[in-house]
Amino acid sequence: MTRLMMRKMKDNQTGTISAIKAGGELGRRIRDMGLIPGRSIKVQGRAPLYDPVALRIMGSTLTMRNNEADYIEVETE
């Protein structure tokens, strides 16, 4: 079990969100999309320029910029 920020995750790596460290508009948006502690996610891949990142969550795909992923802490196996 290691905790790391989502930006550090590799492609196809899975994990469980442990904390969201953003407030305000960004925090709200992240949570509204279902990124909440306890949710399992998988990094599906990254854009050709390595940013943004695409995630698999709740059976659908979400994208976010790396500097937004920096607010999401993930626990990995």
Binding site: E25, L26, R29, I30, M33, L35, P52, A54, S60, T61, L62, T63, M64, R65, E68
Partner: peptide
């Protein structure tokens, strides 16, 4: 102003 968050869905 701050950039608007990019958090969005890639629809099927």
């Amino acid at each position: 102003g701050e950039p608007t968050p990019f958090v969005m869905e890639l629809p099927p």
